[in-house]
């Protein structure tokens, strides 16, 4: 292969398609993630519940969505689930965001459960022995500590979701990958469009990494200089 023969001008001709692709990818990812956090917190708390009728549905949900491929989830939601409930499809955006939210929530729930359960049980006992209710203890004592530990894995999940959002092209979402496919089809050339798509994803994930690192520095174990150092070594 000779790089000098690569024709970058074909990308330029389709620049608007790529720009829209970037926008769609960002929109899908952010909507999916924000929804995934909200739903994930509820399900994650559900997974730590002692009440069986809360615990089991939460656990089942997580197992179901982590145990099946996202591609299959997207197709089921778009082609079967949404038409069955609403009698029609609302397009790739609605289906795509729904699928990303539902999938992301399962992973976030697991992170939130693990974060809560990583807090020493003496913390809850100390809080309860002072007379705090379970939910007061959660809010004041457990969650603030757990949250700091959740930041790195939640950041990883954001990056994973950004990349996985490319699966939504399968239902014809015009995201970054879709733009590449169109160019590839139009010119019957593959290096240029897919390299550009890869580069665009790389730039986006890089930016997210920076944001996550900032948030982590801002919140992570700020009360504990010693642990902070240990954490760096470990990672």
């Amino acid at each position: 292969m000779d790089f000098l023969e690569l024709r970058w001008d074909i990308i330029w001709n389709y620049r608007e398609l790529f720009l829209r692709g970037i926008w769609i990818t960002i929109l899908l990812t952010i909507s999916g993630y924000v929804g995934g956090i909200i739903l994930g917190v509820l399900i994650g708390l559900g997974e730590t519940s002692k009440k069986k009728w809360i615990y089991w549905p939460s656990k089942l949900y997580v197992d179901l969505f982590r145990g099946t491929p996202m591609l299959v989830q997207i197709l089921i939601i778009h082609l079967a689930f949404i038409p069955a409930i609403f009698g029609q499809s609302y397009g790739f955006m609605v289906s795509g965001i729904t699928a990303l939210i539902l999938n992301c929530a399962a992973y976030n729930a697991e992170i939130i459960r693990a974060g809560i359960q990583s807090i020493d049980k003496g913390q809850m006992e100390a809080a309860r022995s002072l007379g705090l209710t379970h939910s007061q203890a959660m809010r004041k004592i457990i969650l603030p500590q757990a949250f700091r530990r959740m930041i790195p894995p939640l950041g990883n999940e954001f990056i994973a979701l950004l990349k996985d959002s490319s699966l939504v092209t399968v239902i014809a979402a015009n995201d970054i990958l879709y733009a590449a496919k169109v160019v590839a089809g139009a010119y019957n050339r593959f290096w240029e469009p897919y390299l550009v798509a890869a580069l665009l994803y790389l730039i986006l994930t890089y930016l997210v990494t920076k944001v996550v690192a900032y948030v982590e520095r801002r919140f992570s174990n700020s009360y504990n200089p010693r642990k902070k150092k240990e954490g760096r070594v470990a990672s």
């Binding site: 809080a127 309860r128 007379g131 004592i141």
Partner: peptide, 28 residues
């Protein structure tokens, strides 16, 4: 919870709240 406010407990492992200052641990 009412009972527990009347009964103080001190643990072997201290169980102070690490994300709060000493003062906040006591005033919370």
């Amino acid at each position: 919870n009412d009972i527990r406010t009347e009964v103080g407990m001190v643990f072997q492992q201290f169980n102070l709240f690490p994300h709060m200052t000493v003062l906040d641990n006591i005033t919370m």
